[in-house]
Design a protein around this nucleic acid. Sequence first.
DNA 1: AACTGTTTATCAGGTG
DNA 2: CACCTGATAAACAGTT
Length: 291
Amino acid sequence: MPRPGKSSYSDQKPPYSYISLTAMAIQNSSEKMLPLSDIYKFIMERFPYYRENTQRWQNSLRHNLSFNDCFIKIPRRPDQPGKGSFWALHPDCGDMFENGSFLRRRKRFKVLRAEHVSCKNAPMMHYFHQHHAGTKPQGHHEHAAGTVGSRLPHFQSYAQPAAFRHPFAIENLIGRDYKGALPLSVMHHLGYPVPAHISSMVNSMWPHVLSEPVPTSADYAPFSVSKSLYHNPGAPPLPAVPVPIKATPGLGHVPGLGALPPGAQLCAPPSSLDKSDLLESKTSALHPLLL
DNA sequence: AACTGTTTATCAGGTG
DNA sequence: CACCTGATAAACAGTT
């Protein structure tokens, strides 16, 4: 295992998964979203190991972006021409990494099917911009069967329960589920007006991490998820549906690995969330003290 | 053509 | 042993 400050390890494979590396890159960006090429750049600049075999690892990374629900695509605006979309972290995956350390992912992040459809697929964003329905969304291959229809209450119950809300509508993206959870910059990018009270809340949840030191190529000092990626006390609970891998009650704070800040409240399912809405959850692993 | 994104498949390693 | 996660390969489609 490479140790921080040992340059002789600089060309070794970093102890981070592609998910971690991608999350690092995105969180390190000022906009909290990056095009694919900038994710490549970030990784190559900081980890010499990834300056070689680019075809191999970049294919893997793209696979991870598409495959993992923790990454969402943000379309470019017409005034931002370029290749591909921006990639951002799903607003509910802030506590994905154990103890805030990128070294270890605590739980698998999976979204509900309905949420997934509206969040993962580009046509939603086109609707988002153009205010009309895009092409019919397709479910992610892994979730296409088995969960149809039954996990919609979050969207349906928001604000105007009786009103039909297209699953691609902005209200369903930034409505109860995402309001205050997407980075401000992303909200702004999407042209969504951000009320002041939400703005302040979001800012406290998604701080700029640019001011934090960035590890050099030889320094695998763990990137830590900034404290405000955890939910603030008082902030409305987000309907994350994390699928815990396992609880690790004994781990606690590892020196240098970034600890849970005092008073931070981790993402747990809202109390109102019906048990049937949880996918394969093991509630013991969701206890805040364990996170 | 090169890049981007999706999907399927396979394998290795860790864990209960 | 079953299951899960992550890494890798590859085919393929769409976009720039």
